[in-house]
Amino acid sequence: MSEDSTVFLAICIITFLIGFPNTVLAFCLCIRKIHRKPIPIDIFMLNLAASDLVFLTFLPVKMKEAADNMVWNMPGALCRFSLFMFFLPLYSSSLFLAAISAERYVCVAFPVRYKSPKRFIYTTLICVFTWVIIAVTSVFTYKAAYLVSNEADNTTNNRSLEPEPWDCYINLSAKQLTELLPVRLGIAVVFFLLPLLICCFCYISLIRILMKCPLLKRQLKLRVVGLIVGTLLVFAISFAPYNASHVVGFIKKENPDWRMKTLMLSTLNACFDPIIFFCISKDMRRAIKVCAKVLCSFMPT
């Protein structure tokens, strides 16, 4: 087992152990809150939690692949489906983080407009439109990676007849890269650069507004800081290296050798999102405090 495979397996395990229980908790609390009194931020948080749950549900497949030294010993059809489920949340998380930042900014900067009765309809439409864009992009990427040429089809068919194991979405043909690299560049712009600019604008503006309100409670300011830090961690650690590989690959017309390491970092996305849930949701903070007290009660004194 190579060093990269060992590190990838460790990251997947850590992400699953931290992200899965927190995301399930956030998802359930969002549903409960929406049933009682829905507000736009709860809709965006629910979609972000759903996106992370999709990612975490299929993460054990990546654990198996890493444990096999990045050799695919599972059915070929599962490779294609797991790729769709692995990359889709990477696209959706950035868009929903941008939507959350915009919602927080509008809530503070334009409180009157924020209370419009149509805001719930607008939020729902934004979420539906976001998922449509993500699904179309994921399908297009899927086809570009596997069905763009007869060479790719023949390779896939030959692999299905061979007893030897093969890799999943690692070694791509020249024809595949020709079709896939422009798609990756577009993904870097639409799903990373634009959401990052939106988040930076909204949170910088939000900080300026809060600095003009010295009477605000310290806890509220700390939660805003936590929200901003959590969002920046996701973009800086999880999304930036991965999308940088798209840009470098497009310029050099190749699949960067270090792309695998960026995929490892992108996996940590589901570890950072609970910070955002904690800073936004009062129910999440209350539930975590209760869980912490229960765990402390079982610890020996």
Rank of each mutant, 00 (worst) to 15 (best):
Pro300His: 06
Cys199Trp: 11
Ala244Trp: 15
Phe129Arg: 08
Leu181Tyr: 07
Thr137Asp: 13
Cys200Arg: 08
Ile121Asp: 12
Val248Thr: 13
Lys293Ala: 11
Ile276Leu: 05
Leu177Tyr: 15
Phe140Ala: 07
Phe192Pro: 09
Tyr142Gln: 07
Pro163Glu: 08
Met1Tyr: 13
Lys282Ala: 14
Gly230Glu: 01
Asn243Met: 09
Ile228Ala: 01
Phe87Leu: 11
Ala174Pro: 15
Met1Ile: 12
Ser266Trp: 08
Glu65Ala: 08
Glu164Gln: 11
Arg184Glu: 15
Pro195Asn: 00
Ala98Pro: 11
Ile237Thr: 03
Ile121Asn: 13
His246Leu: 01
Arg104Lys: 14
Arg286Cys: 10
Thr231Trp: 07
Phe20Leu: 15
Phe110Ser: 11
Leu268Pro: 07
Gln176Arg: 03
Thr267Pro: 12
Ala102Val: 11
Asp68Tyr: 06
Gly226Thr: 05
Met260Trp: 14
Arg32Thr: 06
Ser297Gly: 05
Cys271Pro: 07
Asp42Ala: 01
Ala292Ile: 13
Ala98Val: 09
Phe58Gln: 05
Lys118Thr: 10
Ile276His: 03
Gly226Lys: 00
Glu151Met: 01
Cys200Ala: 14
Phe201Ile: 15
Cys28Arg: 14
Arg259Thr: 13
Phe201Asn: 02
Val189Tyr: 14
Ser101Ile: 01
Val190Trp: 05
Glu151His: 02
Leu232His: 06
Leu97Trp: 03
Ala287Gly: 08
Phe84Gln: 03
Glu151Cys: 02
Thr262Ile: 01
Gly230Asn: 02
Ile288Cys: 07
Arg119Ile: 04
Gly230Gln: 05
Cys279Arg: 02
Glu151Arg: 00
Met70Asp: 13
Leu48Gly: 02
Ile43Val: 15
Phe20Ser: 06
Asn255Ala: 00
Phe192Lys: 05
Met63Phe: 02
Ile207Glu: 05
Phe140Met: 15
Trp72Leu: 04
Phe250Arg: 11
Phe277Lys: 04
Ile31Cys: 08
Asp68Cys: 07
Ile276Thr: 06
Thr130Gln: 04
Ala240Val: 06
Leu97Glu: 07
Asn158Ile: 14
Ile133Met: 09
Met260Lys: 13
Val148Gln: 11
Val225Pro: 00
Arg259Asn: 15
Arg119Asn: 05
Ile126Leu: 12
Leu29Tyr: 01
Ile198Tyr: 06
Leu172Met: 14
Leu227Ala: 04
Ile121Leu: 14
Leu48Phe: 08
Thr123Trp: 05
Ile288Leu: 13
Pro60Ser: 00
Lys143Asn: 14
Ala66Lys: 02
Ser51Asn: 03
Lys293Gln: 15
Ala287Ser: 14
Ser160Ala: 09
Asn69Thr: 10
Val139Met: 10
Val136Asp: 10
Leu97Phe: 04
Val106Leu: 11
Ala49Trp: 03
Pro117Gln: 04
Cys213Ser: 11
Pro60Ile: 02
Asn269Trp: 06
Leu46Cys: 00
Tyr142Asn: 09
Phe44Gly: 01
Thr23Met: 01
Ile280Trp: 03
Phe84Leu: 10
Glu151Thr: 08
Leu17Lys: 00
Ser5Asn: 06
Met211Lys: 12
Phe129Pro: 10
Leu233Glu: 10
Val7Thr: 10
Phe250Tyr: 14
Ala66Ile: 04
Ser205Ala: 07
Val294Cys: 12
Lys118Arg: 05
Pro38Gly: 02
Lys217Pro: 08
Ile18Gly: 01
Asn22Gln: 09
Glu65His: 12
Leu227Pro: 07
Cys79Asp: 12
Met211Asp: 14
Ala236Lys: 02
Asn73Phe: 12
Ala77Val: 15
